[in-house]
Design a protein around this nucleic acid. Structure first.
Lengths: 220, 220
DNA sequence: CGAAAATATGAGGCATGCCTCAGGTTGTAG
DNA sequence: CTACAACCTGAGGCATGCCTCATATTTTCG
């Protein structure tokens, strides 16, 4: 645990430039290779030495958090917009489409959406908010009678997981293919399509454990 | 390219035992860690040296092929049974449930089902047969009017991809959770649930490319 | 301009995993 | 029981990636 003196004032001009270059490279590389991309590759792509990367982002998650901040906000914004849309069914479809759009073609954000990383404070903070909004989106559509009543907010996790693999497989071949699969999923969510489900929904705690598990596997 | 003399007669008794131990260890480790599990770990778990593993299975895919042979057969068998079930809708659900059962809890078979590995002759051979059967299962159910007509056999790939991530996430937490998600998917496949789909189905060639892509990513 | 502070560099130590091969061990045929 | 083929072993070379730190460079501020 080496405690370097943390810089106090604003960054030096070269440091600012380098930081931006690192974020830029990281955005691309993470999107293409996922959260476990080689940090050395990111530094190389930014034209900087590996030590510089570590100076700006001491841990992988510091870098990831900085890169994902924008998309994280977009997710929340989509959810906030969705709870205001009438009819509520359109709010639900808007939300899911928007979320899937954010995931599509970005393997790292796919990971972020599907998994959990205990010590990534910046990322985990927003999740509570997203979760609450998700629950309201679901309940609103159920109250209106368009969404089948045997669904819970936790079932959204299934959709995110499923979509993450679908878009990983298809995005480079046809960047809109995932929309077909999402449409099929939505048809299964309509109240009019409902047939009894054979298994109880996951409880919130179980979703969390599943996400942690995926995360541990990914960044081993 | 070292060309060892290939063994001619039957295996020596100790070699037989070791081979079985390797397959046993590989089955477990591959299931838990996926197709990219460390071969050294498999040898260790079998209580053998790494060189022994390489003697029996010169390439990773030789080992994978041997381990997956049984499940591959089970897949075909399920498909063969499915085309004989009446009504055809029950054949379809039987098939998908069986396939998902095979995938559930076995990360390696998940990979095999979702991806393609050009130089794995033993595994690729069975795929044509599975594909033809899948097409018949779909067409039969459509002819009967239970399966929505805008689906193609290629859409089964979506289901396999989606399920692979769902079961990866949930199996250890609740080994039946995937059944809930599959039921939702099936509700979306019923003719009575159909709403227009926004995107054309993938063509066979595109599915192949997507599978190759996933495979390359996985075994980098 | 001339420090001093901030920053950048990249070689190098550590770990994991692939794969090979020289030399030791064991099964088996005669 | 002998001798040889088959087999097993594990050290070691190669590659990748993590992360650190002594040293070199650049910026900034008086």
């Amino acid at each position: 645990m080496t405690t370097r003196k943390p810089p106090t004032g604003p960054l030096r001009k070269d440091a600012q430039r380098n930081r931006a270059a690192l974020l830029d490279a990281a955005r691309t590389v993470f999107a293409e290779e996922g959260l476990d991309a080689a940090l050395e590759g990111i530094a190389r792509r930014a034209g900087l030495a590996i030590g510089t990367l570590y100076r700006h982002f001491p841990t992988r998650m510091d870098l990831v958090g900085a890169v994902m901040a924008e998309k994280k906000r977009a997710w929340i914004k989509a959810a906030e917009a969705a709870v205001a849309i009438e009819p509520a069914w359109d709010g639900l479809t808007f939300f899911l489409e928007r979320v899937c759009e954010l995931q599509a073609g970005d393997l790292a954000f796919n990971d972020i959406a599907s998994m959990r990383f205990p010590y990534a404070a910046g990322i985990e903070a927003a999740r509570k908010r997203a979760y609450d909004l998700g629950r309201r989106i679901v309940e609103r559509a159920q109250a209106e009678g368009s969404l089948r009543p045997d669904i819970t907010a936790e079932d959204i996790a299934f959709i995110v997981w499923a979509h993450s693999r679908v878009s990983e497989a298809t995005y480079a071949i046809d960047p809109n293919a995932w929309r077909r699969y999402l449409a099929l999923t939505l048809d299964g969510l309509r109240a009019t399509a409902a047939h009894p489900l054979p298994v109880a929904p996951l409880r919130p705690r179980q979703v969390l454990r599943a996400q942690l598990r995926l995360g541990r596997r990914r960044l081993r």
